[in-house]
Amino acid sequence: MSITLAVTAGILFAAGTYLVLQRLLTRIVVGLGLMAHGANLILLGAGGEPGAPPIVGTADPATFGDPLPQALVLTAIVITFGVTAFLLALAYRSWALTAEDTVEDDIEDRRIAELRRREHP
């Protein structure tokens, strides 16, 4: 893994985190997407240096990139795809129900927190 890759992944995670730490669902989904990209880069980089596509017969096997992380990343990408699609449907549904694109606070929690504030102003 090169410094560039590590730093890029770090930036993706930082940007993703920044977006996730608020309440607009669309931004959260985008943030999660950035984090997933970052994770994929880390996993890919874990295979070591870049190499030739691991397709037997196209190059010297010694120059191949590590195929295992590639397979793992592919799996991860597809999983993320499925979950993201679901999350978008959720956002869609949420909008249809409440006309809001936010993750609301938990009502019951707020009640207990309120209780505390009232008792200990």
Binding site: M35, A36, G38, I42, L43
Partner: peptide, 18 residues
Amino acid sequence: VVGLIASALFLVGVGFVY
């Protein structure tokens, strides 16, 4: 959202281990 963040962290963890 919490689940997905945990998953992303799990995945980087696997990356580090590999």
